[in-house]
Amino acid sequence: MSLLIRSSVLLDRMSKEIEFEPTINRLLSWDEKRCKLSPGTRLKALVINVMTGRDPLCHVDQFYRDQDVGLLFGEEVTADDLNDDALARELRHDNIYCERCQIRKPLSKYTTSLYALCRRW
């Protein structure tokens, strides 16, 4: 099988540079024992797809069948792990931990992502 390596690798490297995944994981509450993929990984998958493939959520796993998922997310992750159920779970988060206030605040998912990115710059 021939895998397409496009701008998704560049986006992956940029997300690592700004520590996107660890920042998201620190800000959102989640149960590591019950989730195979962290919120940061799932959000990164959505961002890469939107920036490169723009597939509907129900087809994101098909988009990742043509990508080197091991390179982007680690060898333990498969394209099937990036299905619409797993990714939609991430869109339902309803709070974020504010380090300054030391409390959780309700925010939308996109606001959460922007907040995390802005704190890095």
Rank of each mutant, 00 (worst) to 15 (best):
M1L: 13
M1F: 11
I5K: 04
R6E: 10
R6Y: 01
R6N: 15
S7D: 05
S8K: 00
S8D: 10
V9I: 09
L10S: 08
L10C: 05
R13Q: 14
S15H: 03
I18M: 11
I18V: 15
I18Q: 02
E19R: 13
E19I: 01
F20Y: 11
F20P: 04
P22V: 06
T23D: 08
I24V: 11
I24S: 00
L27S: 12
S29E: 08
D31T: 13
D31N: 15
D31K: 14
E32M: 08
E32K: 12
K33I: 04
R34T: 06
C35W: 14
C35E: 14
C35I: 05
S38I: 06
T41R: 05
K44F: 08
L46C: 09
V47Q: 03
V47W: 15
I48T: 05
M51S: 14
M51Y: 08
M51W: 11
G53L: 07
R54I: 06
D55Q: 12
C58Q: 06
D61Y: 10
Q62L: 15
Q62I: 14
F63W: 09
F63T: 01
Q67A: 12
V69F: 02
V77E: 07
T78W: 01
A79T: 00
D80C: 09
D80W: 00
D81I: 03
D81F: 02
N83T: 01
N83P: 02
R89V: 03
L91V: 02
D94Q: 13
R100L: 09
I103F: 06
P106R: 13
P106G: 07
Y110H: 07
Y110I: 15
T111L: 10
T111M: 10
L114R: 08
Y115I: 12
Y115V: 10
L117P: 00
L117C: 12
L117D: 02
R119Q: 11
R119I: 11
R120E: 06
W121P: 10
